[in-house]
Design a protein around this nucleic acid. Structure first.
Lengths: 206, 206
DNA sequence: AGATTGAACGGATTGTTGATTATTCAGAAA
DNA sequence: TTTCTGAATAATCAACAATCCGTTCAATCT
């Protein structure tokens, strides 16, 4: 990813600096080109447009996140329930901290989400694959009983939507969001119906 | 509600016509006043401001909705699960159709949500009361086993957030939303854990 | 040939100005 | 006195001009 195509990388790095310092809108293609000692027109031999540079930056970061999620999904010595917990919390915390720390990230997320609606779907689909894998394993171990794993993964995503882009839909603090996610997860795992009161209560949330 | 304070009512009715015909922004206080044969200044003896007229209209409509929900929550000859289903579907369908039918409603919802953030919380709290009542009954009948009903109601609202203001957060069609809500509800009721596969499948969704 | 430039195009954005409108309040009507 | 008015005010909005910037491409360089 960082090896091939050095010029592309140079452009991405220059843009990364500008975007995070001045924001996406306030950065011009001419500036990025100048940082790379080339003409604006030449950028278009490497990217179809400005937005694609932003997408490239976002994707690079997201791939790291995905890798972290994959690790959590197959962590040894953890129950399926615990691993599901870890996945959802990692998702919440990463997004929360990213938007908290860097207000520019919010701008980029908004622009990409608006101009490339499919991008968010692609991310969801990636994470669904991880969930399905987790469910497969959980079923073999007899922890979960799931009809259609792909559909179930979609439902989990539906139900945890509020925690995926936290500060977009509420002004809640991270601790409050964590408590809420923990509650939702407990419900999703145990259900409302009378049955196992699953001795394991909520895990540490602070 | 419609009896006392005839002048207030007259104002609300005039505003209702204007708002739904021309929209909130394109309606002026002077026009509403003229429709009531009074001066603009006089409106302020009955409402603190323009937004409060809109809120009044919204609340009047919402009270009807709440009443419908209360009825569904205590419908005889229905299991708790079915009543929960009815509540959530009524919520989804009402909002969906309201925004579908009348683009002006979308404008008003947006303005109120933006200028009066507490309004949405008030609505959620109202509906939580209904959920708690439903849970109380369900527990007595042995259908659900719930620790803290108030918290559980919050979690249900969290998990079904996507279906509360449907076209705000997705471009899905009503049938797709209904299928998804059905899936989420099934998960919330039964849980992921192996246990009862609850012979009752999903109820009619189309 | 292929790679690169930078001036030129047009769509979007910004700043400015003038008009509109929510809200107030001193005073007129009842 | 209480109820209402409508002109005054300050904030917002709409329209227009000027500028900016993403993108293209004919010309230049290697």
């Amino acid at each position: 990813m960082a090896e091939k195509n050095t010029v592309r990388c140079q452009i991405v790095e220059a843009a990364k600096k500008r975007f995070s310092h001045f924001g996406y809108a306030k950065t011009t293609m001419a500036e990025v080109a100048a940082d790379c000692s080339m003409s604006p027109g030449n950028l278009y031999r490497f990217f179809p447009g400005k937005l694609d540079i932003a997408e490239s930056i976002a994707t690079e970061d997201y791939e790291k996140h995905l890798e972290a999620l994959r690790k959590l999904a197959v962590a040894p010595n953890r129950t399926a329930r615990e691993r599901l917990h870890d996945l959802l919390f990692e998702e919440l915390r990463r997004t929360y901290h990213k938007l908290e720390r860097d207000p520019r990230a919010y701008e980029m997320a908004t622009v990409i989400a608006h101009e490339r609606p499919q991008y968010a779907n692609w991310m969801l689909a990636n994470e669904r694959k991880i969930l399905v894998q987790l469910f497969d394993e959980a079923e073999q171990r007899g922890e979960f009983a799931i009809d259609d794993k792909e559909i179930t993964a979609e439902m989990i995503q539906s139900a945890t939507m509020k925690f995926r882009y936290p500060q977009l839909w509420s002004k809640l603090t991270l601790p409050k969001l964590e408590r809420e996610l923990d509650g939702v997860l407990k419900l999703l795992v145990n259900g409302l119906c009378r049955g196992r009161t699953s001795s394991a209560g909520s895990e540490a949330a602070a």
